[in-house]
Amino acid sequence: MAMKAKIKYQFLAVLAILFCGVQYSNAQKSPDILNVKSADLQKPNGSWDMEKNTLFLTRENPQKSRKNIWLKEEYGDFILELDFKLASGTNSGVFFRTKNTEDPVQTSIEVQIRDDYGKADIDKHFCGSIYEIKEVSENRVKKTGKWNHLKIICNGPIIQTFLNNKMVVNIDLNEWHEAGKNPDGTSNKFKTAYKNMPRKGKIGFQDHGGKIWYKNIKIKQL
């Protein structure tokens, strides 16, 4: 290759790399994606704290002292992604589409977050399950102290959860048309048929007495 042609080729290659870098950077800063920070959280927030991109609860509170933490904005259809790690014995959850933050169990949907590493008997309280509604297809939670990746997709009546990059729950809320009962015949504790649960509301993280860490919390509106 002639020297001038070679220099021109190298110059164009550098421009292409720079252009791709700018495009990628702009995509990462998409206004449609919220990277959750302290300013996005509703106060008071009890024993929760946040440093940089990590939200954490490192105190095992007695029941009367527990306080969930909520995002300020409400969400209906969205993709929520985050990483979490647990202490031994932790039982927690991620609430979404919450109508009443004082009664989230009865007015929201909850994905269970729990120390279930190594357990064989999967039930509707298992890590990654829709609490009381639908169990995960398999146990994918890592041992305590290891980071797990959780993705929740809400699109109308369709709710999907992915744990460590594999779908473990895929449900249509419209199939839950009776209060207190699941389509498989098992009972649940809800006073409202799950198809009638709010389709928009607060996202929150549960203080259920165990230590837990969340980081890289990202929400994309659909």
Rank of each mutant, 00 (worst) to 15 (best):
R114W: 04
K119Y: 07
N170P: 06
S137F: 03
L150F: 04
D123L: 09
E138F: 04
K166V: 12
A120F: 09
G128T: 05
N164K: 11
G156S: 11
N174C: 11
D123W: 02
P157Q: 09
V168H: 08
N164H: 05
R114A: 12
I153H: 01
G118S: 10
N165L: 14
E138V: 10
D121V: 13
N148A: 09
C127H: 02
I130W: 06
G145I: 00
R140H: 05
F126I: 05
V168A: 04
G128Y: 04
L150M: 10
I153N: 02
Q160G: 03
N170F: 05
I152Y: 01
W176Q: 07
N139F: 00
D115E: 00
V141W: 02
E178L: 14
K119E: 12
E135R: 11
I159N: 08
S137Q: 06
L150T: 02
V169K: 00
N170E: 10
M167F: 03
W147T: 06
V136N: 01
L150D: 01
K146N: 12
E138P: 02
A120N: 15
V136C: 07
M167I: 08
P157F: 07
I153Y: 08
G118C: 05
G118L: 09
D115Q: 09
W176A: 10
E175Q: 14
V136A: 04
G156M: 12
L173Y: 07
L150V: 06
K119T: 11
V169W: 00
F162Q: 10
G145H: 01
L173S: 12
I153T: 09
I122A: 08
I159K: 00
F162L: 12
I171Q: 09
E135V: 01
K142A: 04
D121H: 14
T161L: 14
K142L: 11
S129Q: 01
H177A: 15
T161K: 07
C127L: 06
I171G: 09
K119W: 03
L150R: 01
A120P: 05
K119Q: 14
I158Q: 13
F162S: 10
Q160D: 06
N148R: 03
K146M: 13
A179R: 13
V136H: 01
I122E: 00
N170M: 04
G145A: 05
I130G: 00
V169E: 00
K146F: 10
G156I: 08
G145T: 08
I159E: 03
H177E: 15
T144C: 06
T144L: 04
V168S: 05
H177F: 15
E132D: 11
G180W: 03
Q160L: 09
L173V: 06
H149Q: 15
K143C: 02
V169M: 08
Q160A: 13
K119V: 10
N155K: 15
H125E: 09
K134D: 03
A120D: 10
N174T: 14
N174S: 15
I122S: 07
G118Y: 05
